[in-house]
């Protein structure tokens, strides 16, 4: 199934070289969890990251479905 991965601000660097913008579409097997994707892209899976699926708060063990968008950014204050 296809999902997309959006890595924001400094996490953009974790996307494969040559990626346009901050988002990439990838194929993953059914049953893939949020944590699998984060591991694949070397995103730290602790309090130093904010990870959401389709903009919503999730746990790392959430199982993804076709068309999901997983986004992550480093937890730092701003605004």
């Amino acid at each position: 199934m296809k999902i997309s991965v959006k890595l924001i601000a400094t996490y953009r660097e974790l996307l494969p070289e040559g990626t346009q913008g901050n988002k990439i579409e990838i194929d993953v097997p059914e049953g893939t969890k949020v944590s699998d994707i984060m591991a694949q892209f070397d995103v730290p899976q602790d309090d130093s990251s904010v990870i959401v699926v389709n903009g919503l708060t999730v746990t790392l063990s959430t199982i993804l479905v076709e068309g999901d968008e997983v986004s992550a950014f480093s937890a730092i204050a701003g605004g």
Partner: peptide, 21 residues
Amino acid sequence: AGSSLREYGTAYVPQVTNTLG
């Protein structure tokens, strides 16, 4: 180590808030 605030200022935030709608 790389900080969004240093690299982008607070201008990195639109992507974050847009992602959350």
